[in-house]
């Protein structure tokens, strides 16, 4: 198993990059929401009740939880699984 320092050394920059991509995706969605709200032509694609919005928020909450179980990846996949 890697040491904590080795995990940070090896994966910090990559994780920073992945988090930036997530942040940019959420910004993209927010900008698209604002554009759809001001443009009747694309209002049909606004999808305000799309369940993936809530799912994304739930998944983000899992990322910052620290209950000691270290099963964030498993929990994300369970959140995204059919019952």
């Amino acid at each position: 198993m890697l040491t904590p320092r080795k995990v940070l050394d090896d994966y910090f920059l990559e994780t920073r990059c992945q988090l930036l991509e997530i942040a940019a995706t959420l910004d993209r969605l927010g900008c698209a929401d604002q554009a759809a709200a001001s443009n009747a032509a694309s209002a049909g694609d606004a999808a305000p009740d799309d369940p993936r919005r809530a799912l994304l928020k739930a998944m983000l909450r899992v990322l910052v939880e620290d209950n000691g179980a270290n099963q964030r990846a498993q929990r994300l996949l369970e959140l995204h699984s059919e019952p």
Partner: peptide, 14 residues
């Protein structure tokens, strides 16, 4: 990894 990505560059141009 370390600077801008293609998607984020497209976002900035948008």
């Amino acid at each position: 990894i370390t600077k801008c990505s293609p998607r984020r560059a497209a976002d900035l141009v948008d």
